[in-house]
């Protein structure tokens, strides 16, 4: 008798629960996008504009980093991954056959310093000097001609695309350690916020995140030093650069394909340039 009653209770509650949820369950097509925060502004803006012409589509965009973009596309939990770096060899082995890597923009990774550092005279550094900072061999701005202040060395989470590119060019290997690092940050926004709030920071950041308080320094020896401008990237003068890619599973539905085509169209590439990157066209 008790058992029947108990079961009744259970069914009652579960039933009530699902009745409440029922109306919410109505399928519309959703495109889930996640990954590199460098690509976030591009995809966000594109999704916003795309929705105007495709009101039946729902697009969600979230960050998390290139590593997350790759991991999630592999898990199949998202429809489009964003990666601000090429696939690693192991990733390419696993995913090469099933995923298309499509570049949608070009970008430079700037070596950024706090405004105070820039004002104190550190406006250019050679690759070797930058490497020495990240290896912990140079610890004070004074050694580089700046003020007598310790260097706040900002490294990024290991799986971040920006770090991948930076480490490849500056430290010699995509997976190199940076024993000189003081703290670790994640997204471009987070790093921008740390640099702008400090007076003695150096970090690696996408070109599009530079501002008055986060200044790019020229990279190179003497007169050969170049700033990470769009022109210098286009002409191949600035070395720390990368393609910003989206990862799309082969055999995606038409909705996804349509959005990808939009990204690479003239209108899509115009968005790329408005938010501060270089077009791939």
């Amino acid at each position: 008798m008790f058992d029947r009653c108990n079961v009744g209770l259970w069914i009652g509650f579960l039933g009530a629960g699902f009745l409440l949820l029922g109306p919410l369950y109505a399928a519309t097509t959703t495109i889930k996008i996640a990954g590199s925060t460098t690509l976030l502004p591009i995809l966000s803006e594109a999704a916003k504009q795309y929705r105007v012409t495709h009101p039946d589509l729902s697009l969600t965009v979230s960050g998390g980093g290139s590593g997350m973009g790759v991991a999630n596309i592999e898990r199949g939990t998202i429809d489009i991954g964003m990666a601000s770096r090429p696939l690693s060899e192991r990733e390419a082995e696993r995913l090469g056959a099933s995923i298309d890597v499509i570049p949608v923009a070009r970008d430079a990774v700037a070596i950024a310093v706090s405004k105070a550092v820039y004002k104190s005279g550190v406006t250019q550094l050679s690759l070797a000097q930058i490497a020495a900072i990240y290896r912990g061999e140079i610890r004070n701005w004074r050694e580089l001609g700046g003020l007598d202040a310790k260097i706040l060395v900002i490294d990024k989470e290991a799986s971040r695309g920006t770090r991948h590119v930076f480490a490849t060019v500056v430290l010699g290997s995509a997976r190199a350690r940076a024993p000189g690092a003081t703290i670790i940050t994640g997204s471009n926004n987070e790093e921008q916020s740390v640099i702008s709030r400090s007076d003695q920071a150096i970090g690696m950041i996408s070109n599009a995140w530079l501002n008055d308080r986060v200044r790019a320094i020229a990279v190179g020896e003497g007169d050969m030093a170049v700033l990470p401008t769009i022109e210098n990237v286009a002409l191949g003068r600035y070395m720390i650069k990368r393609d910003l890619n989206i990862l799309v599973p082969k055999g995606s539905g038409d909705e996804v394909k349509g959005f990808v085509a939009f990204l690479r169209s003239e209108q899509g590439q115009a968005i790329v340039e408005t938010v501060g990157f270089h077009s791939v066209r």
Binding site: G67, M68, A71, S159
Partner: peptide, 19 residues
Amino acid sequence: QPAQTLTSRIGREMAEASI
């Protein structure tokens, strides 16, 4: 000095590791 805790490590890296 900056450091790491078990929880902050999970929070930072959980989404990025491939299953």
